[in-house]
Every structure is written in C-alpha cells, then in structure tokens.
C-alpha cells in the first residue's frame, strides 16, 4: 500500500502531531514499510476463519457492582502534568 504525504498529513491531524515538512517523506516511507507487513498476513487464506476479537481464549470477565474507595485526590493529582488543589489543569480546550 502506497502512503502518500497527504496521508501523512491526515494522520498527523488525527493524532495532533505537527511533523516538520522535511520529515514527511521519511515518515511516509517508514509508515509504508510498517503497513507492508500486513501484506504478509494478507497472503494467508482466511476463508472460513472466524474474525478474532481478542487474542486470549477468555470471555465474560466481569466484576460485581460493589463500590471501593477511590484514590485520595491528593495522590491522584500527583499524576497530573498541571493541577490545582481540586482539579487537573489543561490548556484551554473549547469544543
């Protein structure tokens, strides 16, 4: 599959990345190499094989609806890149 620079631009927008213009050609080549690996898989005959939605043969992993204490806020907010005493802070993001 050919990865064009337009596709690199599109994926950059989706991932909120801003590659330098001179990086784009290299990114396209690298992405193409990664995606070409799928061609190996595509060579396999998968007719009659059920699509796999999970790699382990497990299902119905659930827990009872019983509350447990949450993490104390002070500890929780230690993981924030920026915070005030009550909340995580991020650059203003208005939808």
């Amino acid at each position: 599959m050919k990865i064009t620079e337009e596709m690199v631009d599109y994926i950059s927008v989706l991932s909120r990345l801003k590659p330098e213009p001179e990086e784009k050609a290299q990114l396209a080549t690298e992405l193409e190499r990664i995606v070409s690996y799928m061609d190996v898989l595509n060579r396999l005959d998968t007719a009659g094989v059920e699509p796999l939605s999970h790699v382990f043969p497990i299902k119905n992993v659930m827990r009872p609806d019983l509350p447990c204490p949450s993490l104390p806020r002070e500890g929780l907010l230690k993981n924030a890149p920026s915070e005030d005493p009550e909340a995580f802070l991020v650059p203003k993001a208005v939808e």
């Binding site: 005030d84 909340a87 802070l89 991020v90 650059p91 203003k92």
Partner: peptide
C-alpha cells in the same frame, strides 16, 4: 470548566 480569564481548563 473553562477559565474565563486564563488559558486554562479545569477537568473533573
């Protein structure tokens, strides 16, 4: 909650 004055959003 978007801060009206600062370039900041508080997340709860």
């Amino acid at each position: 909650v978007h801060d009206p004055w600062l370039d900041q959003t508080r997340c709860d």
